[in-house]
């Protein structure tokens, strides 16, 4: 059932210096300008370039309004950039596709479908047989900890449960890249921690590429291989930090690990400095 990604673009890589893993997403000098009124323009993203390796967990961290969501929407193909280009496996991204699965902060579940109906939607659309889609979806629902809720409607679920359904719904159609926009931002601290652990477990099992937008420094360091720090007005990449911490990561071990603590403190300090240096917008 699972599609094996094609490697037909390997020759492109061979020209550039060898890398440990092949790039799956390339963001190439992407800028985004929004027209805010008849005369005014707003530069939301300025010349963003970023390469994401296959199987990497990459977080985008930055203040509110720095263009994190916009960048994610461009990779998703939901928004086309004003200039520059995003590519997946060497192909220009022009529209959404099942190779990139979004998980939105607003959940965006289909309210007229039950939990099971939501999760089955993608596989059915992809032509998976109903009995098979049903079995796979039930397994996914169990994996995200919602066994017993298959026939509930979204309005009957809490925020944390909806977020789990949204994750399961996207995982169900096996996207190669997960695009997650502050998926845990609206949740209470306890639920948030649990979902972070669950996401990490799922990810460490099948190693999908994840592009993960967040406000939270802890969350970014805990989950990621790489943290992309952005700054605001215009949205730019400030710094890209490799998080060199062992996996599988366990929360209780990591929180005591001085290396983890140093990453968190360093990143927070860098944001503080830019706040002081930055002129009011």
């Amino acid at each position: 059932m699972k599609v094996v990604p094609s490697r037909s673009n390997e020759w492109v890589r061979s020209v550039t210096p060898p890398k440990p893993a092949s790039a799956i997403i390339e963001i190439d000098r992407v800028s985004q300008v929004f027209q805010t009124s008849a005369r005014k323009h707003h530069l939301a993203l300025s010349e963003i370039s970023l390469t994401i390796e296959e199987g990497a967990f990459v977080s985008i961290l930055g203040p509110s309004g720095c263009g994190k969501s916009t960048l994610l929407y461009i990779v998703g193909g939901f928004v086309s950039p004003t200039s520059g280009a995003a590519r997946i496996k060497g192909q220009a991204i022009t529209r959404p596709g099942p190779d990139r699965g979004p998980v939105f902060q607003e959940f965006a579940l289909f309210p007229w479908k039950t939990v099971l109906g939501n999760v089955m939607y993608g596989p059915l659309q992809q032509g998976v047989r109903a009995s098979e889609a049903d079995a796979q979806s039930r397994a996914l629902i169990e994996m995200v900890g919602l066994k017993g809720y298959e026939n509930f409607y979204p309005k009957e679920l809490s925020g944390g449960m909806k977020q789990r359904v949204a994750l399961a719904r996207t995982l169900a159609y096996h996207p190669e890249v997960l695009l997650m926009d502050e998926p845990f931002g609206a949740l209470d601290a306890h639920t948030r921690t649990r979902l972070q652990n669950d996401l990490l477990n799922i990810w460490e099992r099948d190693r999908k590429t994840v592009l993960f937008v967040t406000h939270s420094v802890d969350e970014a360091v805990f989950l990621s291989d790489k943290v992309v720090m952005m700054s605001k007005s215009p949205g730019r990449i400030r710094q890209v930090i490799d998080i060199d911490l062992p996996r599988p990561r366990r929360r209780n071990e990591l929180l005591l690990d001085p290396r983890y603590q140093k990453y968190v403190v360093d990143i927070e300090r860098m944001f503080d400095e830019s706040d002081k240096a930055g002129s009011p917008s």
Partner: peptide, 10 residues
């Protein structure tokens, strides 16, 4: 976002 989710599913 609901329409986007649908578009991503194809």
């Amino acid at each position: 976002k609901m329409l986007w989710s649908g578009a991503a599913m194809g």
